[in-house]
Each structure stands twice: as C-alpha cells, then as structure tokens.
C-alpha cells in the first residue's frame, strides 16, 4: 500500500475543503482499502468522514431518507425501511457478508468500483484503470460481464444491488460540493462507459453525498429483489431483478423493474414496465413483458447465457412481487 495521510473532519464544510485539496472520501473503506492494498487506487490523502452527522434513517412527508453514512446492516434492519421499502432491505441483505454490511456505508455502496478481475490485475489491459490500455475482458474471461450498455472499451457491470433497487424506486441523491447543494435521480449518477470508462460517475470534484431520498408509494410494499448467482449468499449477481407491482382490480396499474449483473450501470427496464400496464398479473404476461429486457443486448464470448437468464429472472421477480399485492 502506498503511503497516505488521513484527515479527520468534523463538518461537511471541512470535508469538502479537504477533498478539494485532493483528498479521497473514506467511510467504511471496504472497497477503497482493498483497492489501495492492491495499488489499483493510490490516493495520497484520505478524508475520514465518519464523524459527520449523516447517519440518519427517517421517514419524511413523502420520502424515506437514508443518510450517506448509515451502514448497510442498519438500513436493512431498520423497521421503517422494511415496512415501506422491503425491496431496499432485501437488496441490502443479499449483498456482501454480515461483517461487510456492518462496515459499508450507503454512499460508499453506491460509489463502489467494478469487480472485473482485470481491473484489479495491474499487469492486465484495462481502460478503466489505465485509460487507453485496452480491455482484457472483451477477448478474455467475461462470463460475469455486461450485455447492456457495453462499448469496445469496457463491459464491466456495476456491482451494487442497492443501486438497482434505488433506480427501480426512482430515488434521488442529495450532494454538496464547493458550489453548493444539488439533487438528482440516482440513475444519473452513473455514466455509460462509451470510450471513457475511467469516468464512472457524474459527481463533481469534492462533492459529498449527503443522503438518498426514496419516494414512498403504497404499492412499494410489493417490492422484491431476486439475485441469481453462483452460490446462494455472499456473491455478486450474475443477473438480478428488482420488481415492484401495483395491481388493482386484477390489472397491473404500475410496474417498476430494474436489473443488475447485466448492465454497465444499474439498468432500468422501461419497455418491460410499459408492456405490463393494463395486463393481468399472470406468468404468461410476465414472460411476454420480460422478453423486452434483452432489446439491444450484446453478448461477449462467455456471457451469452445472460440473454436467456435475464428475462427468466425478471419473470420470477415479478411473480414474487405479485404474491405480495
């Protein structure tokens, strides 16, 4: 690990000033410390933000608000979260391990970096780690890689389960930086790789995530998260699906579907949602709608199975949500 300094900050203003001078924010550190030890990340200074008052979890008028420093485990266990947004609790508990969930913050979870093996291998080509060096995954071992939103430069999936749930639920994020505060949909945090995969997100220099706002809608109690993977816990998704259904008088009035493990960012499925509106919540109708998920999908040498697995995962997630309406 390269040497670095650690600044302990007591206020948001102090944090933003320290980060403006080149420091990297650190909270749980579960991704960053690992990558620093591998020397994939080499920050010369860290800004420890754990003393900031951003650990709140509360229900406001029309939204569940989750502070950036709340830990995955405490959000997942929070009674209000489980009551109004069970999808968030389920997505969190299906991620990482109990130890990591005690450590990892919500802000850090959303900012975690990709799990492509070549990204971590310093002697492999990786446009994300070393712009212009090429992509070893496209001709290499790519069974876990994306089929949506890929480019000639990168096909790594975004690994966060929480982000998939939040994108499905139209959550927004509040951030503060040297130029002040702003708020935007979480889907807009993530960039497509295109020809610049090293640019992963849209935060401006020194911007600090304050909290996440998730609109509360009565039908969100139907939300389910299905994660398909190589073992039944403590593993990243091959394909995952978040599904929420609003069914009234036996007909789907609204649907929210987003997927993980398939896109270079959390992937909302508007065509699937549109195809469900006005339909009866039957398996056949779910299958027909889910078939829209693979529009524009492109497989690499090792991940063609995801084109079959994706609609099936969505179908099952919709069935699970349908059982709760």
């Amino acid at each position: 690990m390269m040497p670095f300094t650690v600044a302990q900050v007591a206020s948001e203003r102090e944090a933003i000033t320290s980060a403006g001078g080149g420091g990297r924010y650190i909270a749980g550190g579960t991704t960053l410390i690992d990558l620093m030890r591998e020397e994939v990340e080499r920050p010369s200074s860290l800004v420890d933000i754990n003393r900031l008052s951003l650990r709140h979890i509360r229900l406001e008028r029309n939204a569940l608000v989750i502070g950036a420093l709340a830990r995955m485990a405490e959000v997942a266990a929070h009674p209000e979260v489980r009551r109004v947004h069970p999808l968030i609790a389920e997505a969190l508990e299906e991620g990482a391990s109990p130890q990591l969930r005690n450590m990892a913050s919500i802000g850090g979870n959303l900012m975690q970096r990709v799990r492509c093996p070549y990204f971590r291998m310093l002697d492999a080509a990786c446009n994300k780690r070393s712009p212009g060096s090429g992509c070893a995954a496209i001709e290499g071992v790519n069974g876990g890689h994306a089929i949506l939103g890929t480019s000639e430069s990168c096909a790594a999936t975004h690994p966060s389960d929480l982000a998939v749930a939040l994108v499905a639920l139209d959550a927004t994020m509040r951030v503060r930086g040297p130029q002040g505060e702003r708020r935007f949909p979480i889907i807009d945090l993530y960039r497509l790789p295109e020809d610049k995969p090293h640019l992963e997100h849209t935060l401006r220099p020194a911007e600090l995530i304050l909290d996440v706002h998730v609109p509360v809608q009565p039908f969100a109690v139907s939300g389910r998260y299905l994660k398909v993977r190589d073992r039944s816990s403590y593993e990243f998704a091959l394909v995952s699906a978040a599904a929420v259904l609003d069914v009234r008088n036996g007909v789907v009035r609204a649907a929210r579907v987003a997927c993980g493990g398939v896109g270079t960012r959390p992937w909302r499925m508007p065509a699937v949602e549109a195809a469900l509106i006005g339909q009866r919540p039957t398996r056949a109708n779910f299958e027909t709608a889910a078939a829209h998920a693979t529009q524009g999908a492109r497989a690499l040498s090792g991940n063609g199975y995801k084109i079959a697995l994706l609609p099936r995962t969505i179908t099952r997630a919709l069935e699970m949500a349908g059982e709760k309406v």
């Binding site: 650690v6 550190g29 410390i33 690992d34 485990a73 391990s97 130890q99 005690n102 450590m103």
Partner: peptide, 13 residues
C-alpha cells in the same frame, strides 16, 4: 460490539 473484517479496517480511523 459489531463483527467486522479487521483486515479492511484502518486502525487510525
């Protein structure tokens, strides 16, 4: 009071 992975925990923090 909480279980953590001590390998990913910087003591200075």
């Amino acid at each position: 009071g909480k279980r953590v992975n001590s390998c990913l925990t910087l003591a200075v923090m």
